[in-house]
Design a protein around this nucleic acid. Structure first.
Lengths: 192, 192
DNA sequence: CGCGTGATTGAAACCCTTCAAGTTTAGTGG
DNA sequence: CCACTAAACTTGAAGGGTTTCAATCACGCG
């Protein structure tokens, strides 16, 4: 019961102690192994994951078989394909585990009920959505306006810890360039 | 009182008739001329706009003075710099009017109060946020994974009406390419 | 009409990708 | 713990796509 998730609900989401037991019933915990696939293209996403330990990834695969990474979720982040979860439409994305991962699993019903039971949860849920939008806006702005080098620098500034945990080609995939290009960008930077 | 906005609240947001008068007090209507600047870089965004008629634009300007368009808002869309509005931080983006525009203006307080008064409004507000996230995810996926041609085709498929109302160089700006490139992409397409 | 804005086109430069090879690193099994 | 293998990273050369810069054309508006 004294899990990372409940600490998070208490300390960060500020859910009142009396509400916690009510929320407890609705979630389950899952141990995932590196490489485990949690959501496939075409499937309707039913779950939301809270990462207690480890790392999850949301990505697409195009016609040529290339992976494009939409999002990472390290510790204390929520991961889901919201488009599919909320709207019930088939997902065009995949979710898998990049490391052995301890995650709390719940569904949209949990979010809805938690929002009814706890106003604090509702508030925090909106905060998460707003924050997500802000972050994506920033990313779009970089993708349409900045060079590969600047995008890379922004990435390691924003997620210095992440950059150490994932292979370089995944950073490249996140930035929208090839691994070779990223390698050259990095060489260019060290020569300064 | 029988404005597009109230019709929208009634028909689309499904706000109950009895709640409408309560919401009425909190908003004002504004007539904007083409070119009017509604938000500047550095400024904290205080307003949210509902476009009844016309067209708004959210964009950034980089160090070289180039504009990068983040979002358009035609009729029946909400426009704001959410990051700045919700978090109270200075905006890195601009908002202006691309056409003479009739817009309803309100603030975050309105959204919060409306959510308290009308559960339907709250529900719809979350819908808006989720939809925004879904749309941005799709756009990011295209930006990191698709060619300029494919991005252009997706754009005119998604917003055929918009494509007729804005100059081509703005589409290019939205897609993250130069006007010249878009011109060549289009030539390539007509030759098929 | 003339001016300004937007669209098109060409040529050269540039950045990024592709393909191929070689090197380094990490993980696995003997 | 070493040896081996696969994965990841680097590097080079060639090619492709996009940008840049400049010039021209088309159009609408004062």
């Amino acid at each position: 019961m004294e899990s990372t998730f409940y600490n998070y609900l208490k300390k960060k989401v500020l859910v009142k102690s009396e509400h916690l037991p009510l929320l407890a019933r609705e979630v389950s915990k899952k141990m995932l192994s590196k490489g485990d696939l949690l959501l496939t293209e075409g499937q309707v996403c039913k779950n939301m994951f809270f990462v207690e330990q480890g790392l999850l990834r949301l990505y697409s695969i195009d016609e040529e078989g290339r992976e494009h990474i939409i999002q990472f979720a390290p510790e204390n982040w929520f991961m889901s394909e919201r488009g599919s979860l909320y709207f019930g439409s088939p997902s065009v994305f995949f979710i898998d585990a990049l490391e052995d991962t301890k995650a709390v699993v719940f569904d949209q019903q949990f979010v809805d009920r938690a929002s009814e039971i706890s106003p604090e949860y509702r508030t925090y849920n909106e905060y998460i959505l707003q924050n997500h939008i802000r972050q994506m806006q920033k990313r779009i702005n970089l993708l349409i306006g900045a060079t590969a080098e600047k995008r890379y620098l922004e990435f390691i500034k924003l997620y210095p810890d992440l950059a150490m945990r994932i292979p370089q080609w995944m950073i490249a995939s996140y930035l929208g360039i090839t691994p070779e290009s990223l390698s050259r960008v990095r060489r260019g930077l060290t020569q300064k």
